[in-house]
């Protein structure tokens, strides 16, 4: 991962500052078009960072999420002119112009804000995140370690889940019932072994950490978190640009 693009070389906290700047602007803007361009700028950053293709599935998921958000809200706003009715002649499924605009804003705002997260994750190794948080933000090491360790276990858990599914299938366990309640209940025989395996594994890990002097007292770190000239440049331009754009749009 390191050295792929300038985005990968930045300090993780610089990218967090960028992310916060995008969130701030998403709240400042009150028109769809500026927010749309804000979102476009996030995708442009991903493109320059050579991770656009990599994060595309995540972006697609966020778009679906935003669409669901939009659909849930759009029928609930009564104000303004009615532009569309789902069942003509009745009040059911009425959409107004005010509602349409407000919900478009909501969906776009959410998209612009959340799209920075996949960019952040795709360009930052978790251990760099730990070092930056512990060294620069003084987050206690144990919390940072917990976060990263849980991230590390996700692929292992996925492997174990497919193992459990295969085992239950071998016992002719039905996982594909049509009834939604039955399907939900069918998850329990999957979740239980997975949970027990994780508890066992967590115990082994705790013992393994204990035998390597975990919690012995103050600790040192192999890696260090530094701000380069590039970081300072990016942070100051982020802050400056956000301030200028905010003042212009709020006037």
């Amino acid at each position: 991962m390191p050295g792929k693009s300038f985005l990968h070389k930045l300090n993780p906290l610089t990218k967090v500052v960028w992310s916060l700047a995008v969130i701030t602007l998403a709240f400042v803007y009150q028109e769809p078009l500026p927010i749309l361009s804000l979102w476009a700028s996030v995708l442009a950053v991903a493109l320059i960072g050579k991770v656009l293709r990599e994060i595309l599935p995540a972006i697609r998921g966020l778009i679906i999420f935003a669409a669901i958000f939009f659909l849930f809200q759009v029928f609930l706003i009564d104000e303004g002119q009615v532009v569309f009715t789902l069942v003509p002649g009745t009040g059911i499924g009425r959409i107004t112009d005010v509602g349409l605009k407000a919900c478009t804003m909501l969906a776009l705002r959410m998209l612009a804000m959340t799209s920075t997260i996949p960019v952040l994750l795709a360009t930052t190794p978790p251990k760099d995140m730990i070092v930056a948080f512990v060294e620069k933000l003084k987050v206690p090491y144990v919390y940072a370690l917990m976060l990263v360790t849980s991230l590390r276990f996700i692929p292992t858990l996925q492997e174990e889940l497919s193992l459990v599914i295969q085992a239950q299938r071998a016992w002719a366990y039905d996982l594909e019932g049509r009834n939604i309640i039955k399907r939900f209940l069918a998850l329990i025989p999957l979740a239980l072994p997975l949970l027990l395996m994780s508890v066992q594994r967590a115990r082994t890990m705790a013992i393994s950490m204990e035998t390597r002097a975990f919690g012995a007292g103050p600790r040192t770190s192999l890696h260090t978190s530094t701000f380069q000239l590039l970081d300072i440049g990016v942070i100051s331009s982020c802050l400056l640009l956000t301030a200028v754009l905010a003042v212009v749009s709020l006037r």
């Binding site: 066992q200 594994r201 082994t204 393994s208 390597r212």
Partner: peptide
């Protein structure tokens, strides 16, 4: 050293795995 190679490793990169114990003992960089 334990049985399960997966569960006893805490880091993502080999070097960091070796560093873990040394960091805990506050060995200089």
């Amino acid at each position: 050293v334990f049985q399960d190679p997966e569960a006893q490793l805490v880091a993502e990169v080999v070097e960091d795995e070796l560093a873990f114990g040394l960091e805990n003992l506050a060995v200089p960089r």
